[in-house]
């Protein structure tokens, strides 16, 4: 079962503490277990670009993006036995403490 794990910021979470950030350990464990297929950080919203096609014309703009204090800061594609394993993986990620994590089951097109 594949899950897309969105790593997001959350103003109500505990403040970020670099000393407590064990992301390297998390990646090492999850890659060794074979449950983390790939993942990365994402550049902040200032570097994002919006693309729309309207009346056949491609519109490229620097926004507007939905004003939100909870923005996606990274992602990981998980391969877990079931939701309980995905929850266990997510709960060990440092951003579960310093932010929030959303688990979305992947919905393959062949189904």
């Amino acid at each position: 079962m594949k899950y897309m794990m969105f790593v997001a910021t959350d103003p109500e979470a505990e403040p970020y503490d670099p000393a407590q950030d064990n992301i390297q350990e998390w990646v090492a464990e999850m890659v060794a277990r074979g449950v983390n297929l790939h993942g990365d950080r994402l550049r902040p919203i200032e570097d994002a670009t919006l693309v729309r096609v309207r009346n056949g014309e491609v519109l490229v703009t620097d926004g507007p993006f939905t004003e939100s204090k909870e923005w996606i800061a990274g992602y990981d594609m998980l391969e877990a036995a079931d939701l309980d394993e995905a929850i266990e993986i997510a709960s060990k990620h440092p951003m579960a403490r310093f932010g929030r994590i959303e688990l979305r089951p992947v919905w393959p097109f062949e189904e």
């Binding site: 079962m1 036995a81 939701l83 309980d84 089951p105």
Partner: peptide, 14 residues
């Protein structure tokens, strides 16, 4: 079904 919530008694630590 879609999120694969397991059909089992949770493990000891849970």
């Amino acid at each position: 079904t879609e999120a694969a919530i397991p059909y089992r008694v949770p493990e000891a630590h849970l």
